[in-house]
């Protein structure tokens, strides 16, 4: 790390951050707009317990995923902050 200039570090850090955000937002969109809405009609026959899967995703599953996504971001960023030596 020490051989890199501060500028290179900042660029690398920002790239790592952007790719992480991209991955997490893709999951965010898939669980809510994808499984909850766009595929709601074709997937309506699949059941979770006694509840149709799209209904469960749109009213329960996606929200649970959202909470996990935010904590995952915070946790992974702790590591990225430390790796690029920009942590507090």
């Amino acid at each position: 790390m020490s051989k890199q200039s501060a500028e290179e570090r900042a660029i690398g850090y920002w790239k790592a951050n952007i790719s992480l955000i991209g991955i997490l937002l893709a999951i965010w969109a898939i669980v809510s707009f994808g499984l909850g809405y766009l595929l709601a009609n074709p997937l309506n026959g699949i059941m979770i317990g006694n509840v149709p899967f799209p209904f469960w995703m749109a009213q329960q599953g996606a929200i649970i995923t959202f909470v996990i996504l935010i904590f995952a971001y915070a946790k992974i960023m702790d590591g990225i902050d430390a790796k690029f030596d920009v942590n507090e």
Partner: peptide
């Protein structure tokens, strides 16, 4: 979804 999903945008 609208009133919870916004927090993912906010956090990231």
């Amino acid at each position: 979804l609208g009133w919870t999903g916004g927090y993912v945008l906010l956090a990231l």
